[in-house]
Design a protein around this nucleic acid. Structure first.
Length: 435
RNA sequence: GUGCCUAUAGUGUAAUGGUUAGCACGCGGGCUUGUGGAGCCCUCAGUCCGGGUUCGAAUCCCGGUAGGCACACCA
């Protein structure tokens, strides 16, 4: 018999790699951050949207670039019983654009400001701040080419991060230009690096074929010297794009947001154009050496709508905040969700007669919106008091045999240890008048 | 996808290749306790999985799986 139980237990399934249960405090940690981010987004005029976790696979295939790692190996895609090809979203942007079209949001006053929050899936190897199922908070502005939209995304994002407790953030920003000028830029970039093909790292030799822009992003020491003389996307910008970029920078200056123009900053996905940015935090590692960490990123994606098959351009800009990524930083505050309130009273009951009535007394308190903690175990009076002490709850309600008979309770002030006997009818008023 | 490290009860840990894998917390139960973190007793529960070496493996070797970290990639 015990053999059987053992066997059964071992066969109980466990959660998938990189997919976690989120329980109690962790749950509230997510919820608290989301509520704060949502609050900021609402202040800046963003509206909520929730799209399905599962979409037609095509929503993501073309948009991210078929060559990208995300599409090649990280997307959770499968065929349904009916034969449809579907995929768990590996990011939000394409879904948002899909929804924009589907609901004719181009008939709303433009631009449309949207925020969204939820799980995202990538079949990747887990590591610090990265899981296979993780959560993102996103901001998108669709329907305008105006530079103020880019600035508003950055402003809202940095405000959220400041509310989370981050300080002294720097925006690394660049413009990768529009489709035509970018093609010329990439061609020149490829020509330039081809001259050095024997000197650059293996990854970069591969990048030369698959994703030349990422050459500028390489961290290998042997590749660093070539960045200096490499063509810069900014010098290829059209007049329009150059003007746009200059305005974005003006907005940032006006708002006092610290930024650096970084000509080596590029993006992995195909749909980005013009403004790309990253939020940088300067950190010191164990050896006291300074290093820069990217905490989140975003950019403009005007070409997305047409890449997805739309007839009209839908200029747009957005950003996505990885929640796990954010939460691993020590300065990220633990923000309690609104529903969690510090309990004002600890309810103690003694003896079965009191216990019978105890739920009714607690209900009186709930109706009066007084948060209560309680022990429904059989602990002694002493240990229940001890619990209240430990939890730093200012008042105890003691409800024993005698009190149950008289329809009263004892209210004890934990600090002064003074006690009052109060009628249950008068209890909520009595407690409301306590500090 | 690649590399390095790790794997003993729910948690934290102990055990030179050699008794029945030990301890603490915890869970569950019982007794005691009307005023500040209590006590006593009982119970539950473990060597990740699969091979190999050996008279004998938690311990050594190989493979898998999972976790951690880094790279790639992404944000």
């Amino acid at each position: 018999m015990s053999e059987e139980i053992k066997k059964e237990k071992k066969e109980l399934p466990i959660s998938l790699k990189g997919m976690n249960d989120i329980i109690d405090e962790d749950y509230y940690a997510y919820q608290g951050l989301f509520e704060k981010a949502q609050e900021v987004a609402v202040y800046y005029g963003f509206k909520p949207i929730e799209t399905p976790v599962l979409e037609r696979e095509e929503v993501f295939l073309k948009t991210l670039g078929e060559e990208s790692d995300v599409v090649e190996k990280e997307i959770y895609a499968f065929r349904t019983k009916g034969g449809d090809r579907v995929a768990l979203r590996p990011e939000y942007t394409a879904s948002i654009m899909r929804a924009y079209h589907e609901h004719g949001m181009n008939n709303l006053p433009q631009p449309v400001l949207l925020y969204s929050y939820g799980p995202v899936f990538r079949h990747d190897n887990p590591q610090k701040g990265r899981l296979r199922q993780f959560r993102q908070f996103n901001l998108e502005i669709l329907g305008t080419t105006q530079s103020i939209a880019d600035a508003l995304i950055i402003r809202t994002l940095t405000t959220i991060l400041e509310e989370f407790g981050f300080k002294d953030l720097i925006i690394d920003i660049n413009s990768i230009g529009d489709k035509d000028t970018r093609a010329v830029f990439i061609k020149d970039l490829t020509t330039y690096y081809k001259k050095h093909i024997s000197e650059i790292c293996k990854d970069c030799q591969e990048r030369l074929k698959t994703n030349p822009m990422k050459l500028l992003d390489c961290k290998h020491p042997e590749c660093q010297p070539f960045k200096e003389g490499a063509p810069s996307s900014i010098s290829y910008l059209s007049n329009d794009a150059r003007h746009h970029f200059k305005e974005v920078l003006q907005y940032l200056e006006e708002m006092g947001i610290q930024y650096r123009v970084n000509n080596t900053l590029v993006r992995g996905f195909d749909y980005y154009n013009r403004t790309v940015f990253e939020v940088i935090k300067v950190d010191t590692d164990e050896n006291g050496k300074e290093r820069e960490i990217t905490i989140t990123a975003g950019g403009r994606y005007d070409p997305l709508a047409k890449i997805m098959g739309g007839k009209k351009d839908v200029p747009a800009v957005g950003t996505g905040l990885g929640m796990e990524r954010i939460m691993m930083f020590p300065e990220c505050k633990k923000i309690m969700p609104r529903i969690i309130k510090a309990p004002k009273v600890y309810f103690i009951q003694l003896g079965f007669d009191a216990k019978l009535k105890s739920l009714c007394v607690i209900e009186v308190l709930r109706k009066a919106h007084i948060p209560v903690h309680q022990s429904i175990s059989k602990d002694s009076l002493g240990s229940q008091l001890a619990m209240a002490e430990k939890m730093e709850i200012p008042y105890c309600i003691i409800f024993g045999q005698k009190e149950a008979m008289d329809n009263t309770v004892i209210v004890r002030h934990m600090e002064t240890r003074s006690q009052d006997t109060v009628k249950i009818d008068a209890l909520s008023d009595y407690i409301k008048h306590l500090k």
